[in-house]
């Protein structure tokens, strides 16, 4: 048995705290990255489909959301078997639906957006959530949120008829790359 002084004890507690924080962040990244990549693939497909069939864009995005929610439960179940932690549960689903409802209220109730404005609003609205969440759980979320939001706005102002393919690339592709980058970290 050893004896230690208060300074050594404080240093040991600080080490414990630092490692625990890194484990929590790495676990959040590991679990979220799979969800982010999956949403990236869906968003990529949604944008391409909206470009090809613009009149069906509303239905396409409803299908993307439904597939995303179902996929999130599947990915979360897969993550749970590996880590014991559920990354998407009923509380997350409720938050997601409330978030969507507020977005619909803004874009349909308070104002009427053009298709291009809608295609800009939703990504930057979601990226705002990524950025805010990132302030608590890790800088990777902030980088993904701000990066995609900035490129979305650049596309809105600078890209002409190829806006949807641009969004497929930077929103869908951005999420896929961001998720893979997060996984590496």
């Amino acid at each position: 048995m050893s004896r230690i002084d208060p300074q050594q004890a404080a240093s040991a507690l600080s080490d414990i705290d630092s490692v625990a924080r890194r484990v929590r962040q790495s676990t959040v990244y590991q679990l979220s990255s799979l969800l982010i990549v999956m949403w990236g693939v869906l968003v990529f497909a949604g944008n391409i489909a909206s470009f090809l069939w613009p009149r069906s864009a509303g239905y396409i995005w409803i299908a993307v959301d439904v597939a995303g929610i179902a996929g999130s439960f599947v990915v979360s179940g897969f993550g749970r078997t590996r880590t014991g932690i559920r990354s998407f549960d009923v509380r997350m689903l409720t938050a997601f639906l409330l978030f969507l409802a507020f977005g619909f209220f803004c874009t349909r109730g308070l104002a009427h957006f053009t298709p291009r404005q809608l295609a800009t609003f939703w990504p930057i609205y979601f990226m705002l959530a990524y950025t805010l969440v990132g302030l608590w759980v890790g800088r990777a979320f902030v980088a993904i949120g701000l990066g995609i939001a900035a490129l979305t706005l650049a596309g809105y102002f600078l890209i002409g008829d190829w806006f949807e393919p641009w969004m497929a690339l930077i929103n869908g592709g951005g999420l896929i790359l961001g998720g893979l980058w997060m996984r590496r970290n």
Binding site: D15, I16, V19, A20, R22, V23, R24, T27, T83, G84, I85
Partner: peptide
Amino acid sequence: AALNALPATA
């Protein structure tokens, strides 16, 4: 510290 930061079964 790392192992104790996870749920008991993880």
